[in-house]
Amino acid sequence: MERNLSRREALQATYKSFRRGWYKFSRNPLSVLGLVMVLAIVFVAILAPYVSPFPKHAGRYVCFKDATQPPSLNHLCGTDVFGRDILSRILFGYRFSLMMGVVVLVLVTPVGVVLGVIAGYMKGTWIETLIMRVTDVFVSVPALVLALAICSVLTPNIMNAMLAVSLMWWPWYTRLVYGLASSLRTEFFVQASEAAGMSKFYILFREILPNCLSPVFTKMALDMGVVMILGASLSFVGLGVQPPKPGLGTMVADGAKYLPDLWWIAMFPALAIVFVVMGFNLLGDGIRDVVAVEEV
């Protein structure tokens, strides 16, 4: 009975802090703009087959009669050299970008966070040395370069691109959480659990981990944009989404061949990348401000 009550109270407290956070968030028009942009993109990406004007143009489709038309009312972003509507392809391209961001972060965050918590709590032991020195190695070369190298030895497709970026991205989470965890390990509540004889597992995942999570979520929101840029860059050099699938980076690379005359083929996908990354950055900044204020 008592336990139930405390759980309900905890729930209410969470709800209250959520309401407070949302209030702070909604006071900043830029954060709200970011949220709206992200929601809009997610919406059109999921419903791409229904909302895009020419859903067939996302794949293998050729109609030379309509080829290389400049932007018009019928084709808002123009058509490419095969006569495919670029706007439709962008909407489908968002699917790959979002998939890239979500899959990479879902793969990377748990691994990075767990390793970081362990390394932070075990500070001064060989485990910490091992984990942290390995992250040193991974961050000693630009992530994009190693991701390119990995992609180049594997078959180029979006799965391998996601794998490559994931392999390069976990150390940043490990480093973030390591810093937090190593300062938390001397806190009283951790020492109390140790004195009470709690298992290492309990201390790591029930005591320390929950206290590291809000910066992690902030970083995830900000990283979405970065990972999407990495994915687009891989696609740009032909190591990510493969044509005829409409990756945003792939489309920019395609269009770059026809610059400057057919400028719209490359320009609109490029703007689309900027738009989505901007949305996630605004959202991430908004979340960061809320979390930072709450922590004070």
Partner: peptide, 23 residues
């Protein structure tokens, strides 16, 4: 600065080529 951070370098490269190189 915001625009600078959210724009991938290859997009800048293409825009610069287009604007300062060709136009």
């Amino acid at each position: 600065a915001y625009l600078g951070i959210v724009t991938p370098s290859f997009v800048f490269a293409i825009v610069f080529v287009l604007l300062f190189g060709y136009a």
